[in-house]
């Protein structure tokens, strides 16, 4: 991996881009707020550098992990700085921002619901574009140093490849200084399958 042709790489970037609009709309509707989502940053990154890409290895963050299953396998993870996660929960529950100060079971559910909606909308666009079925597992949450919550993903990935194709989408909620990111990675076999599908469907 890492030796894709320019056309293959551009096609993969397109795949990442396709989901964003739908996910942004879904999130915006869910929160009743304007959402800023830039096009994803799609790049190969060495596994040892991934936590730096997501804001720093030691930063304490709220992470939500979903496994991607079906015709393609992979992982999705949301990384939000803790204060931002609490503010987001306030928006979801319709409370005054600044109200939530810790992660209760209820708050956790609310946050996970957001991740479900975002991921679901993203994958539904991908599935349509590729004519494949890609589904998400239930979300799992952990709050700790970025490196520690990523490391099991990197460990499993590194058994097959050292460079990860990272599809990273920054999520910014207008007017509230809440920023997080959503990252998707596909397992090496699925990445190859994805490229084959793109070749067949779109003749790249």
């Amino acid at each position: 991996m890492g030796d894709l042709t320019d056309m293959e790489f551009d096609a993969l970037k397109e795949v990442g881009n396709v989901g964003v609009g739908n996910a942004a709309t879904a999130l915006s509707k869910f929160l009743d707020k304007k959402i800023d989502i830039a096009l994803p940053d799609t790049r190969f990154v060495h596994f040892s550098k991934l936590s730096e890409e997501l804001g720093g290895a030691e930063r304490i963050v709220t992470g939500v992990y979903l496994q991607l299953v079906g015709d393609l396998s992979g992982e999705a993870i949301f990384i939000f700085e803790q204060e931002g996660a609490f503010k987001l929960i306030d928006l979801i529950t319709g409370n005054q921002v600044g109200n939530t100060k810790n992660m209760t079971t209820f708050n956790e559910s609310a946050f996970k619901e957001m991740t479900n909606i975002f991921t679901g909308a993203y994958l539904s666009s991908l599935s349509k574009m590729l004519d494949l079925t890609i589904l998400q597992s239930i979300p799992h949450m952990a709050a700790d140093m970025t490196q520690s919550i990523l490391d099991f993903i990197l460990i499993r990935f590194s058994e097959h490849a050292d460079d990860i194709l990272m599809i990273k989408t920054e999520i910014d909620i207008q007017g509230h200084n809440i920023n997080g990111c959503f990252m998707m990675i596909f397992e090496p076999d699925s990445l190859s399958k994805l490229i084959d599908v793109l070749k067949t469907k779109y003749g790249i």
């Binding site: 936590s51 030691e58 140093m145 490196q147 919550i149 990523l150 490391d151 099991f152 460990i155």
Partner: peptide, 13 residues
């Protein structure tokens, strides 16, 4: 010495 060795954010590692 005088170096300090460290690992950051050990999860399952």
């Amino acid at each position: 010495p005088p170096a300090t060795l460290g690992c950051v954010g050990l999860g399952s590692c």
